[in-house]
Amino acid sequence: MKILKAMYFLTLALALMVYACNPPAKKESKSSKAANKVLRYSSITGLKSEKMAYYKKLHAAAWHGVLKKITECNIHNYSIYLKEIEGKLYLFSYFEYTGTDFAADMKKMAADTTTQRWWKETAPIQIPLPDAAAKGETWSPMEEVFHHD
């Protein structure tokens, strides 16, 4: 009888541990699912080869105010990659957006004076692709053709 009682309490303790580590998923409303949706953005631009070292140095010590504004504007998991193709340098950026109004967040970022000063440092050393240059922009958006979570 003592063995059965001990096994019962052991089983109960294991069940509680499993529950504590893996509580049942809460049902989410449609609005909370929409609010948690992650949108992925990527873009590309060129980089002046003689400015590559400066660009890397600048981003190795990115300004706190710029990083803070990026986060405030619901941008996460932001990366920029560098690739040389046929003797030309290209930058590829990727980030995830978790907000609900991308246009408003981008306006908020563009209005930030620290971010404006950052862009005055980075824009002149980048080489916009023709589609971006035609619109007076630096980065060209890229189409996502595959994603796997």
Rank of each mutant, 00 (worst) to 15 (best):
M1C: 14
M1A: 12
K2N: 02
K2W: 01
I3T: 01
L4W: 03
M7K: 02
L10R: 01
T11K: 06
A13K: 13
L14V: 12
V18C: 07
V18R: 09
A20N: 03
C21W: 15
P23H: 08
P24I: 10
K26M: 11
K26T: 10
E28Q: 15
E28N: 15
S29Y: 05
K30P: 12
S32K: 04
K33T: 04
K33H: 13
K33P: 08
A34N: 14
A34Q: 14
A35I: 09
N36M: 07
N36I: 03
V38R: 14
L39C: 10
R40A: 14
Y41C: 10
S42V: 05
S42W: 07
T45D: 06
L47T: 07
K48G: 00
S49L: 02
K51S: 01
K51W: 10
M52V: 07
M52C: 02
A53V: 06
Y54P: 08
Y54Q: 09
Y54E: 12
K56T: 14
K56C: 11
K57F: 08
L58G: 12
A60I: 06
V66P: 00
K68Q: 03
C73F: 00
I75R: 05
N77S: 05
Y78Q: 08
S79E: 03
I80D: 13
Y81G: 02
L82Y: 08
E84R: 13
E86D: 15
E86Q: 15
G87F: 15
L91G: 04
F92T: 01
S93M: 10
F95I: 07
Y97T: 03
T98H: 13
T100C: 05
T100I: 07
D101W: 06
F102Y: 03
A103M: 09
K108V: 10
T114C: 05
Q116P: 08
Q116W: 05
W119R: 04
K120S: 09
E121M: 11
E121K: 10
A123N: 15
I127G: 01
D131I: 14
A134I: 12
K135D: 08
T138V: 07
T138N: 05
W139Q: 02
P141M: 06
P141L: 06
M142T: 06
M142Q: 13
E143H: 11
V145W: 01
H148D: 13
